[in-house]
Amino acid sequence: MLQASDITYTYNGGLKLVFPNISCPTGQHWLLLGQSGSGKTTLLHLLAGLRTPTTGSVSIGGTDISKLRASRLDKFRGKNIGIVFQEPHFMRALNVEENLALTQSLSGQKVDKKKIHTLLDRLNIAHKLKSDTSALSQGEKQRVAIARALINDPVLILADEPTSALDDKNTREVISLLEEQATAAGATLLVVTHDNRLREQFPNQITL
């Protein structure tokens, strides 16, 4: 499903990172552990097609995304990859529902309000449908961010340090939400973190 072979990335400054090969079968949940500065975020961006690897290739569901160019890669990412970031950010001018609707339409899909409502309901924040995103609590923001990552039924969910700002209770909640939703959607989940609290929850681990 997610396959990264022989990828390296060279920064403008000349610093070269070599990454281990990754192979995550469909529907499995993986943890990618690495200390700060080990290039975790860079690797996540490479896997999401936000950066192009200097050498090697990344393939998702059989598509070699390092060979996709420009706008086709953008559309592929919008449709197939959901990303949850460490800090949940949203379009400030839009409310919760509109943020999700925008994510739907940018990936080239029709806006499906019913689907948005169902998803928010599943994440227990349906009552925040019309709220400004700035009015949400940290936990609520993280849920909306997860909803945004899931709304287009991606085959791959990437989570970048989703728990580093959360306490133990919220960490457990967010991780189980991610795992539940990924399982429900049949998507492959890869959590990138330096958070050792997550070690026990993921049998499949890669260490940088």
Binding site: A70, D74, G78, K79, F90, S107, R148
Partner: peptide, 10 residues
């Protein structure tokens, strides 16, 4: 974020 969601530079 828009780019992540599939927006093109255009």
């Amino acid at each position: 974020l828009m780019r992540v969601s599939g927006a093109t530079p255009a």
